[in-house]
């Protein structure tokens, strides 16, 4: 079994989906001859040809619109937006068309498209290349939002997203692209959407996180274990629809929850998780739910980036706060 990093796993999943299903096409800026800005589509053009691996003009609105049309007419398009900073021109297409084609046509048309985009900071990129806008996308009824946090989950969740009958936004944490390797079997097996992954089980505290922050959170859980505090770590994986049963069940057991995300605090997805806990698990809580998040500022340039991103120390400090409550 090959050891792959996350971007290689994405590449492997795309190749597998294209080989297994002739309806799958890939489109985006530089995805063809160039192989993609992060090499996610490397080799696909040579293998599947220009009809199925389509270089588009620099026009995100058009990329999304073409994908909506392709999907409505029976193809399985996988569109790439080079960075989430450039995802905003696609939003009208996603909100007003992709997410509601099924309801507007009473099921006559569906929109089985995937919009992939590298997301998040930590790679010393300039402005517009480091943001985490998942909360905005996850607010849209009818739009699934998936963020993998390991090569294996990237492979399995992307296959699931491509075969899903409805639109999926698939946000790939840029910082994880080459951060970790693990064995990934190219077996064509999808992983379940709409389910959290419990990465670690403990009785004292529940961490809820997703994307690149899974690394910091797992490291914090290890440090806590070193002093006898056992934490559960939940990777949301699918942000919308939210598998809140898994979260609520865990927090009912531990009584304490820390949510960790990279996007700015206010209006981030952590607010929704916290609100669900306020609604469904308030009486089980031994301490307030605490959010560790990016600051409410514009994403800073590289010199301050490490300060902006929640690190292990900030996660640990939040854990200390919720553990203090008797």
């Amino acid at each position: 079994m090959d050891e792959l990093n996350l971007v290689q796993a994405v590449n492997r999943a795309l190749a597998r989906a294209m080989a297994d299903d002739p309806r799958v096409v890939v489109l985006g800026e530089d995805v063809g001859r160039d192989g993609g800005v992060f090499r996610a589509t490397d080799g696909l053009f040579a293998r599947f040809g220009e009809d199925r691996v389509i270089d588009t003009p620099l026009a995100e609105l058009a990329i999304a619109g073409v994908a909506v049309g392709m999907a409505a007419q029976g193809l399985r398009p996988v569109a790439e937006i080079q960075f989430t900073g450039f995802i905003y021109p696609t939003i009208d297409q996603l909100v007003n068309h992709a997410s509601r084609l099924r309801t507007r046509t009473r099921g006559r048309l569906a929109c089985p498209m995937v919009l992939r985009s590298p997301s998040g900071g930590g790679i010393h990129a300039p402005e517009h290349h480091s943001e985490s806008p998942e909360a905005m996308l996850a607010h849209i009824p009818g739009l699934r939002v998936v963020i993998p946090s390991s090569p294996r989950r990237a492979y399995g969740l992307l296959l699931a997203a491509i075969s899903d009958p409805d639109p999926v936004v698939f946000l790939e944490p840029t910082r994880l692209y080459r951060a970790v390797r693990e064995p990934v079997a190219d077996d064509g097996e999808a992983l379940p959407l709409d389910r959290c992954f419990v990465l670690r089980e403990g009785r004292d505290l529940t961490f809820v996180t997703w994307g690149a922050m899974v690394l910091e959170t797992m490291a914090a859980a290890e440090r806590l274990a070193g002093r006898g505090v056992e934490a559960t770590v939940i990777d949301l994986a699918t942000l919308h629809p939210l598998d809140h049963e898994t979260i609520v069940e865990s927090v009912r057991g531990t009584g304490r929850c820390v949510i960790v995300h990279e996007a700015p605090l206010s209006g981030g997805w952590g607010a929704e998780v916290a609100a669900r806990l306020a609604e469904h698990a308030l009486t089980a809580l031994l301490a307030p739910v605490v959010r560790v998040a990016g600051y409410d500022t514009v994403m800073p340039l590289p010199r301050l980036e490490a300060h902006y991103m929640p690190g292990v120390e900030r996660v640990l400090a939040a854990a200390e706060r919720v553990l203090e409550f008797a």
Binding site: H139, H240, P241, A271, E272, A274, A275, A278, V289, V290
Partner: peptide, 17 residues
């Protein structure tokens, strides 16, 4: 707004915090 991811979620989270 639609409930999931609404500003109401942010307000709720702050009240709890």
């Amino acid at each position: 707004a639609w409930r999931t991811g609404s500003l109401a979620a942010e307000v709720s989270a702050r009240v709890m915090e």
